[in-house]
Amino acid sequence: MARRVYATVEQLTEWTGKPVPPDAARLLTRASEDVDDALLTAVYDVDDAGMPTDPDVAQALADAACAQVAYREETGDTGTGAAGRWSSVSIGPVSMSGPQPSAGGTGAGNVDLSPQAYRALARAGLLPGVIR
């Protein structure tokens, strides 16, 4: 099954108002995966490719993906989950405190979803998993 990517590089440029990073397509793919994880219990109509058919839902998913990329850029996370993992770290002798509380909302998949992405999905009625 092909990966669903909910926003284009052009939409990201418009959403952020800034030049996009060179790896914007990859970042949008990872952000779309985060959105998918947050929507594990959401129900909405999709086409054969799994993309939303309702323009309002499609826009909400695009906004959420763009917000997630911007959030990851601000926090320095590449989408691997490694950034911001610990609240305190020392090198010698090794000491770690953790895990750092999530800065964003968490969706159904317990993903570190940006507050703006969470709000975009909630406004569209996709969180928490609305059944229509």
Rank of each mutant, 00 (worst) to 15 (best):
A2T: 07
R4L: 08
R4N: 08
V5Q: 12
V5N: 01
Y6A: 10
Q11P: 05
L12I: 05
T13N: 12
E14L: 15
G17A: 09
G17C: 06
K18C: 00
V20R: 10
R26D: 11
L27C: 03
L27F: 02
L28I: 00
L28Y: 01
T29P: 02
T29V: 01
R30T: 05
S32E: 03
D34I: 02
V35S: 03
V35W: 01
V35M: 04
D36N: 14
A38H: 01
A38N: 00
L40F: 08
L40N: 07
T41K: 02
A42L: 04
V43D: 06
V46T: 15
D47M: 12
G50M: 03
T53R: 04
V57P: 11
A58D: 04
Q59L: 13
Q59I: 00
A60W: 03
A62Y: 02
D63F: 01
D63C: 09
A64E: 00
A65I: 04
A65E: 10
A65N: 10
C66R: 10
A67N: 08
A67V: 00
Q68R: 11
V69C: 07
E73Q: 15
E73V: 09
E74L: 13
E74Q: 14
T80S: 15
T80Y: 10
G81M: 07
A82C: 11
G84T: 03
R85C: 10
V89E: 15
S90Y: 09
S90Q: 13
V94P: 08
S95F: 13
S95Q: 15
S97P: 02
G98F: 05
Q100E: 09
P101E: 07
S102P: 03
A103M: 14
G107W: 05
G107E: 05
A108F: 05
A108I: 02
N110L: 11
S114G: 12
S114C: 06
A117R: 07
R119V: 06
R119A: 08
L121C: 09
R123E: 12
A124D: 04
L127E: 04
P128M: 02
